[in-house]
């Protein structure tokens, strides 16, 4: 049974059901209106319901089919470091400026790579920071602070 649960079809279906139900729940209290003046709730409820029903169908088909694609191998560590890099960029950009944001972004993102090469990372980060500053701040004059406001 566990194997069937970990099929892509079953999981994808479950995810769609989840999103569909979430949409229906959130949109339930938006006014539905009538045919002449359709309210803002009508379309999201209808779409959410359709998504949930279809997701249910996909999920059940995945669960009960004689065979189905199993969830592929996965290793979320690179994703985690990438996300941390993006988060660091978003957090630092307006607080510490573009240079710090790029350095941190590259520093974290490179942790998703094995083996970790500290010198290469430092050189790459410095290069990209210079490139980013050169193109966007000096070249294009975008209102992005280099070193915080």
């Amino acid at each position: 049974m566990k194997g069937r649960l970990l099929r892509t079809g079953t999981l994808a279906g479950g995810l769609f059901v989840l999103f569909g139900l979430l949409a229906v729940t959130l949109a339930w209290n938006y006014p539905a209106g009538d045919l002449r003046r359709m309210g803002p709730g009508w379309v999201p409820v209808a779409l959410g319901a359709a998504l949930a029903v279809l997701g249910g169908g996909i999920g059940l088909a995945g669960l009960f089919a004689r065979e189905g694609a199993a969830l592929p191998e996965r290793d979320p560590r690179p994703l985690f470091w990438l996300l941390l890099g993006v988060a660091a960029f978003a957090f630092l950009l307006e607080r510490a400026g573009l240079i710090a944001a790029i350095l941190a972004c590259v520093g974290f993102a490179r942790l998703g790579e094995r083996p970790y090469r500290p010198v290469e990372t430092a050189v790459l980060a410095a290069f990209l920071a210079a490139l980013g500053a050169g193109i966007f701040v000096y070249g294009l004059g975008l209102p992005i602070p280099l070193f915080g406001r």
Binding site: A90, A109, L128, F136, I144
Partner: peptide, 18 residues
């Protein structure tokens, strides 16, 4: 790729922000 992807990521971040 190990040199390319940090560059892609950084430009994406700047592009989304900009």
């Amino acid at each position: 790729y190990r040199l390319l992807y940090p560059a892609i990521l950084v430009f994406c971040c700047i592009g989304v922000y900009g």
